[in-house]
């Protein structure tokens, strides 16, 4: 990662044809790189221009009547809460499943389990949403009633619990299931790439299998795990259908087991078809905010990975 490719001295080896190929290739890859940046800039530009009317409108004209900021922040918090719940559930489960597949399960079990996990990623989100709303939500109602009964003093579990189960927590669980395959398959991939050398170093010191995983596999895989979590977070933040179908929306409230709360993506999806004029501009501004959130999340992830670079073994 930190290696720099030194350009070959003229006349040392490659033929003229090889050099022509080189410049064609570098030209192509440069063009591809520029294209991506142009598209990205164009999207950002579009969002911004379309959103401008919202920022200049009188606060009373914006939905809610108190300006754009008052409109958007509950949605931002709702988005983050849903994504956080999903990550809190999917990260440990995903990593454990990946470890089981890569380092514990016999080959004849590992293959099918890995295959099934990958299949989960191919299921469209509408299906998850429908399943979440019709099967999972009712099934979770007793749990929610129990939670308010015993843990109701914690604001997250404040009652009365929703009797349909269409709550933030249900949405978070559905999102967790949706992002699980991302974390699992990426982590598994990286776990199996751990150099034998380092695994044997740990085992030869008298490490048990779990200790070997802690000493060799997890440190090696850490940047990969972080990337997979970030990718999963991106999906969770932007997921529309599952949340739109599962959550019975409302204003921002601390309780995760009552109806209420809303995410940016679902807000856009639910209101976009009938929106025009300022309302349309508001929704696009909301999209811009979501875009910024994902950007910030990605930058944080890069910063975390860079911090461990010196110890990554890449040198």
């Amino acid at each position: 990662m930190s290696t720099t490719v030194s350009t070959e001295k003229p006349g040392t080896s490659s033929s003229a044809a090889g050099r022509a190929g080189d410049s064609v290739f570098s030209g192509l890859s440069l063009a591809a790189g520029i294209l991506i940046l142009v598209v990205l800039a164009a999207v950002a530009m579009f969002l911004f221009l379309q959103a401008v009317p919202t920022f200049t409108a009188a606060p009373g004209d914006v939905t809610g009547g108190k300006g754009f900021f008052a409109y958007i922040w509950p949605l931002v918090v709702g988005t983050l809460i849903a994504a956080l719940i999903a990550l809190l559930i999917a990260t440990p489960v995903g990593i454990l499943v990946a470890l089981y597949i890569s380092h514990y399960a016999p080959a004849r079990v590992a293959k099918p389990v890995g295959y099934v996990i990958d299949l989960l990623a191919a299921i469209p989100s509408v299906i998850y949403g429908a399943w979440g709303a019709t099967v999972l939500a009712p099934a979770l109602v007793p749990l929610y009633t129990w939670l308010t009964g015993y843990l109701g003093f914690i604001p997250f579990f404040g009652g009365p619990a929703s009797q349909t189960g269409k709550t933030m927590l249900t949405a978070g669980v559905v999102l967790a299931i949706m992002i699980l395959p991302i974390i699992t398959s990426m982590s598994r991939e990286i776990f199996t790439q751990t150099p034998k050398l380092h695994e044997e170093a740990a085992l030869a010191l008298g490490a048990t299998r779990w200790e070997m995983i802690r000493m060799s596999v997890l440190p090696f895989a850490r940047p990969g795990i972080i990337s997979s979590i970030m990718l999963a977070l991106g999906r969770a933040l932007g997921e529309t259908m599952a949340v739109a179908l599962v959550l019975s929306t409302g204003p921002l409230i601390p309780s995760l087991i009552k109806s209420g709360n809303q995410t940016i993506a679902a807000e856009i999806a639910l209101n976009f078809p009938e929106a025009y004029g300022l309302r349309m501009s508001e929704l696009i501004a909301a999209g811009l905010v979501l875009f910024l959130i994902t950007l910030v999340v990605n930058m944080i992830a890069r910063a975390i990975i860079a911090r461990y670079k010196e110890f990554s073994g890449a040198n």
């Binding site: 150099p195 050398l197 380092h198 044997e200 170093a201 740990a202 085992l203 030869a204 010191l205 008298g206 490490a207 048990t208 000493m215 060799s216 440190p219 090696f220 850490r222 461990y308 110890f311 990554s312 073994g313």
Partner: peptide
């Protein structure tokens, strides 16, 4: 085998310090 390996240490052909550790 874990106890065996803590009594009988091993050094490998290619040096293999843990890269993420000091």
């Amino acid at each position: 085998p874990v106890t065996v390996r803590s009594m009988v240490g091993m050094v490998f052909q290619r040096p293999n310090p843990f890269p993420t550790m000091s």
